[in-house]
């Protein structure tokens, strides 16, 4: 036997082994993914059967309403993760999004309380939100800082600016737009719930039905390939951060309407936003973030808190369960990515 044949034989057996390993791993991934979805379904089924009033239309609309703010924020986060890639440590992430919402809410409420109209106040909130987004883009794309660190720093900038502006106080606000968001309804569904429906539809259209969305997935999935295909990668990534800031501003207006004020402590929402965007990936076959997946997980998180309350289970459990789910999903996705990498 010559050395070359020996070499090819070893190579072939290696490949066979790798293929077998891959196949079992892929199977494992499917099992884990379906397991996660089955767990979601089981929890929901349990609520349907045992939580009194869970399935009433009134209650379900309540949950959609309660999910609107989280949903809009989670879409921003989802876009950043799509564009930056879903690697948890090095991929796209916007830790500043909740603090940015707090800042935008403070700007919006402060301007309203100073007597400026909705038009100017909304414009200012959007401008501030997008400016913070642009700051993220500058740090990540321009300076090449790891998104995890860059947006963590910007989180502090935004939170500090909010504190400076409000002195950590509650700033009450009233306006025609806020009154409409609070009490307006159409077909028995409140304006806030409609806001979630509308934003979801727009986001799904942009991300999943335009060539822009397709290119964005290409940028996140394989930046070198995207660059080779002539896509302006830095522009796309920057865009996601600015859009995330825009989402923060939209969410801030919804928040002010719901709380009739801007209040300190918006940063607390970050964990839920991250949970929603990460959980959403289990609803896609390739574990990529999708708008539909994020919407489902936002509603799931809302239903979780709601179901627990209806069952009279302590609200302290909700945070714990949320944390456990994040851990599960991150484990599942890294497992899945392992199989893709070794392919």
């Amino acid at each position: 036997m010559s050395a070359t044949t020996l070499h090819t034989e070893i190579g072939a057996s290696d490949e066979k082994q790798a293929a077998a390993k891959n196949a079992s791993r892929r199977l494992g991934t499917i099992v884990v993914r379906l397991g996660a979805i089955a767990a979601f379904a089981a929890i929901m089924l349990y609520f349907v059967v045992f939580a009194p009033g869970f399935t009433s239309t009134f209650n379900l609309i309540n949950v959609v309403e309660q999910s609107a703010i989280l949903g809009v924020l989670a879409y921003g986060m989802t876009m950043v993760i799509i564009g930056g890639g879903s690697d948890v440590t090095e991929g796209g992430i916007d830790l500043s999004i909740a603090a940015n919402m707090g800042l935008c809410a403070a700007v919006y409420a402060t301007l309203l309380s100073m007597g400026y109209g909705d038009f100017l106040a909304v414009l200012a909130a959007l401008a501030v939100g997008m400016a913070i987004g642009a700051l993220n883009a500058l740090a990540v794309v321009g300076l090449g800082i790891l998104p995890l660190l860059a947006t963590l720093a910007v989180l502090n900038v935004a939170a500090g600016m909010e504190l400076t502006l409000t002195q950590n106080t509650v700033v009450g606000a009233t306006s025609p737009l806020l009154a409409f968001l609070v009490s307006g309804s159409f077909l028995g569904i409140s304006a806030l719930a409609w806001a979630l429906v509308l934003v979801s539809a727009i986001m799904i259209a942009i991300v999943h039905y335009t060539s822009f969305g397709l290119r964005l997935f290409a940028v996140g999935g394989h930046p070198e390939a995207a660059r080779a295909a002539g896509i302006n990668v830095p522009f796309y990534i920057s865009f996601t951060y600015v859009l995330s800031g825009f989402c923060a501003a939209v969410a801030s207006i919804l928040t002010v309407s719901r709380l009739s004020a801007s209040t300190p402590g918006s940063g607390e929402l970050l964990l839920s936003v991250l949970a929603a965007a990460l959980l959403g990936t289990v609803f896609s076959r390739r574990f990529v973030p999708t708008i539909g997946g994020t919407l489902l997980s936002v509603l799931f998180i809302g239903l979780l808190a709601n179901g627990f309350q209806l069952l009279n289970v302590s609200s302290y459990w909700v945070n714990g369960v949320q944390g456990a789910l994040i851990l599960l999903v991150v484990a599942v996705t890294s497992f899945a990515r392992g199989s893709e990498a070794s392919r």
Binding site: Q66, T263, G265, L269, Q309, L310, S315
Partner: peptide
């Protein structure tokens, strides 16, 4: 969390 208190009150009213 104000946000959470409002959500809890809203669900509580439905209960």
């Amino acid at each position: 969390k104000d946000q959470q208190q409002i959500a809890q009150l809203q669900t509580l009213i439905a209960q």
